[in-house]
Amino acid sequence: MSQIAWLGPDDAFPDPAVMPDPDPEVVGLFAVSERIYRGQLETAYRMGLFPWYSDNQPVLWWSPDPRMVLEPKNFKVSDSLQKTMRQFYYDPTCHIEVDGDFGAIMRACALSPRKDQDGTWITHEIVDAYSQLFEQGLAHSIAVKQGDRLLGGLYCVSLGRMVFGESMFSRQRDSSKLALALLCAWCYDHEVPMIDCQQETTHLRSLGGGPIPRTQFLSLARDAISRKSIGSPWRFDKTALERWL
């Protein structure tokens, strides 16, 4: 059994496409670093890795097996969500803000309570690192709003035609689902084959997500990443919901 790699600022990530899990009892953990070094986050995503850790921990780099993904065309709209969509769509005070205040969306995700989870993995270091990706046009946010009031939203990473979903939050029922519906519509229109959802959950499965083997995910993701970028900033409005109405 090989050891989990401890990375310095100039060390390369182990490639999860060719390397078996270093520790079979901790499936998906491939590397550890003291902090997120400059340029490291983009490199990790290109290799199918992402950071997930808590305050007072070193940075843990994961590539789960299986990997939860959502094909945009498979997004599921329940009757109750359909009703929420229509109310939002036809309410002139409701709108969305794409690639607006990225930091505010990240902070809202960090402060959103999670079932069976104490604290947050969205540390100050995580906010800083993803904000740098946003400034490079590689991260994006969707805010669901009523007037000036922020109801919910999400943020994600986008490389080529691959989108990596990161975190969502709701301050009003179904508002995070609205953000995901908008993201799926945008991705469908731009030929994004799948949205990475990282870990399998009942909630994501109810919205159309499903697990695939890590080897399949890495192959599909690298192909999507190699394609021409969607571009930045993203520009769309709530009429994208028409795909699901």
Results as ranks from 00 to 15, higher is better:
residue 2 S to H: 13
residue 5 A to P: 00
residue 5 A to V: 12
residue 10 D to G: 09
residue 12 A to Q: 12
residue 18 V to E: 13
residue 18 V to W: 10
residue 19 M to A: 14
residue 23 D to T: 10
residue 23 D to G: 03
residue 27 V to D: 08
residue 28 G to D: 01
residue 29 L to G: 00
residue 29 L to T: 00
residue 33 S to L: 11
residue 35 R to I: 07
residue 36 I to T: 04
residue 37 Y to K: 05
residue 38 R to I: 07
residue 40 Q to S: 15
residue 41 L to A: 08
residue 42 E to C: 04
residue 43 T to I: 07
residue 43 T to A: 15
residue 44 A to W: 02
residue 45 Y to D: 02
residue 49 L to E: 08
residue 49 L to Y: 08
residue 51 P to C: 11
residue 52 W to M: 14
residue 54 S to V: 05
residue 58 P to E: 10
residue 58 P to T: 10
residue 58 P to W: 13
residue 63 S to C: 05
residue 63 S to H: 01
residue 64 P to A: 01
residue 66 P to E: 02
residue 66 P to T: 03
residue 67 R to E: 03
residue 70 L to C: 01
residue 70 L to G: 01
residue 72 P to D: 00
residue 74 N to A: 09
residue 81 L to F: 03
residue 83 K to V: 04
residue 85 M to Q: 07
residue 86 R to G: 01
residue 88 F to I: 02
residue 89 Y to W: 10
residue 90 Y to R: 11
residue 94 C to M: 08
residue 94 C to F: 04
residue 97 E to K: 12
residue 98 V to Y: 05
residue 99 D to N: 15
residue 99 D to C: 06
residue 107 R to G: 10
residue 108 A to D: 13
residue 112 S to D: 11
residue 117 Q to L: 11
residue 117 Q to K: 12
residue 118 D to A: 11
residue 118 D to S: 10
residue 119 G to K: 04
residue 119 G to L: 02
residue 121 W to V: 07
residue 122 I to C: 12
residue 122 I to K: 05
residue 122 I to M: 08
residue 122 I to R: 14
residue 125 E to D: 15
residue 125 E to V: 03
residue 125 E to W: 01
residue 126 I to G: 08
residue 128 D to V: 12
residue 130 Y to C: 08
residue 131 S to F: 11
residue 132 Q to M: 10
residue 134 F to V: 11
residue 135 E to D: 15
residue 136 Q to I: 02
residue 136 Q to V: 05
residue 139 A to C: 05
residue 140 H to V: 13
residue 142 I to P: 00
residue 142 I to L: 04
residue 142 I to M: 01
residue 143 A to L: 02
residue 144 V to T: 04
residue 145 K to W: 04
residue 148 D to H: 10
residue 152 G to M: 09
residue 156 C to E: 06
residue 157 V to W: 03
residue 157 V to E: 10
residue 157 V to K: 04
residue 163 V to M: 13
residue 165 G to T: 08
residue 171 R to P: 06
residue 172 Q to A: 15
residue 172 Q to H: 14
residue 176 S to I: 07
residue 177 K to A: 07
residue 179 A to R: 02
residue 180 L to H: 01
residue 184 C to R: 10
residue 187 C to R: 07
residue 187 C to L: 11
residue 188 Y to K: 13
residue 188 Y to D: 15
residue 188 Y to N: 13
residue 191 E to Q: 11
residue 191 E to K: 14
residue 200 E to A: 11
residue 200 E to D: 12
residue 203 H to Y: 12
residue 204 L to A: 07
residue 206 S to P: 03
residue 214 R to V: 05
residue 215 T to H: 13
residue 215 T to C: 12
residue 216 Q to N: 14
residue 217 F to R: 07
residue 217 F to Q: 12
residue 219 S to L: 15
residue 228 K to F: 09
residue 230 I to N: 04
residue 236 F to C: 01
residue 239 T to M: 09
residue 240 A to M: 13
residue 243 R to I: 01
residue 243 R to G: 02
